[in-house]
């Protein structure tokens, strides 16, 4: 049980990275981006292309760091893939969502267009890489480290947790200390007043999409390192992402972080009693429960 909880925290930290982006975008644009999960897939596959395609061709050595399952190739691919998905995310907004927003389209039209975008992204991944599960580094699983309470944890998983922690701390510092970070929070609070104060809200929106995209890409790559890559991985994450977002209170970044961890642990611990195939059902159950009992989320969110 203790071990499942630890695995749940690893999974939950990955969910949290996605949920934070979802909640940031919702906080500012009041828009639920159903394509957010598939951006996760894009991040994972761009890293795959770099690690197994471009970098070997460039002659970057295939060494691994200590007992980790990857090395320099992944260390380089990680930030590059994050940047690529950040740009993809911004372009998605500029090309698709923004024109709809300017036309004052209803929320159903916005949701349908996001759903459409998610299909297109997934199909492109399927065309380029096929429907099979893939790995960054096929072969043996690295030996696990034994912690107290008979918890077995792989070095990769420790690195995943520390990466998420670093990203969250960086995001926190960005939001609390920088001018753009503060403007993002201000815009999420009250976009009209932000404009009246002279804040360039269009630039704030671009930053929000960029950061959301970069974080969800990081989540996708980390999941790929921990488990495997699959064209439907991000789509399958969409439900837990939304559940985590709602749990933490929509628009509340710190709530999304906790919500992600709760969802991860709930899903993993459930496998002690249920078949793992029921994991999405567990996410759905948690989401329904919150919506029935405390729809504003545990930590309170914004008015919709």
């Amino acid at each position: 049980m203790a071990e499942l909880t630890v695995y749940g925290i690893v999974l939950g930290s990955i969910i949290a990275l996605g949920a934070i982006g979802l909640t940031l975008v919702y906080g500012i644009l009041r828009f639920a981006n159903f394509a957010h999960g598939d951006l996760m897939t894009v991040g994972a596959y761009i890293a795959l292309f770099l690690v197994t395609g471009l970098f070997p061709w460039l002659g970057i050595p295939d060494t691994t760091f200590g007992s980790l399952s990857f090395g320099w190739r992944m260390a380089l691919a990680f930030p590059i893939a994050m940047a690529c998905v950040a740009i993809t995310s911004i372009l998605l907004d500029r090309i698709l969502y923004r024109p709809l927003r300017l036309k004052r389209s209803g929320s159903v039209i916005m949701a349908m267009s996001a759903l459409g975008a998610s299909f297109i992204i997934r199909m492109i991944v399927l065309i380029l890489w096929g429907a099979d599960s893939l790995f960054y580094r096929p072969g043996v699983l690295r030996p696990a480290i034994l912690l107290p309470l008979e918890i077995k944890i792989r070095p990769d998983q420790i690195l995943i947790l520390s990466t998420v922690l670093t990203l969250v701390v960086l995001l926190y510092l960005f939001l609390q200390r920088t001018k753009m970070g503060k403007a993002m929070r201000a815009t999420a609070d009250n976009m009209e007043l932000a404009r009246v104060s002279g804040i360039d809200t269009e630039r704030v929106i671009v930053w929000t999409w960029g950061i959301g995209g970069a974080l969800v890409a990081a989540g996708g790559i980390l999941y790929g390192i921990d488990v495997q890559l699959h064209p439907y991985m991000g789509w399958n994450f969409l439900l837990p992402l939304f559940a985590a977002t709602i749990l933490g209170g929509i628009g509340n970044m710190y709530g999304a972080l906790i919500g992600g961890l709760v969802m991860g642990v709930a899903q993993q611990v459930s496998t002690a009693y249920l078949l793992p195939t029921y994991k999405p059902a567990v996410a759905f159950m948690v989401m329904i429960l919150i919506l029935l009992v405390k729809p504003q989320g545990i930590f309170g969110g914004r008015r919709a």
Partner: peptide, 17 residues
């Protein structure tokens, strides 16, 4: 007419954006 989740100082800083 204020940003409720920001601090007083941050509200004033936003005025100087």
């Amino acid at each position: 007419n204020v940003f409720p989740s920001l601090t007083i100082q941050e509200n004033l800083e936003m005025g100087a954006f």
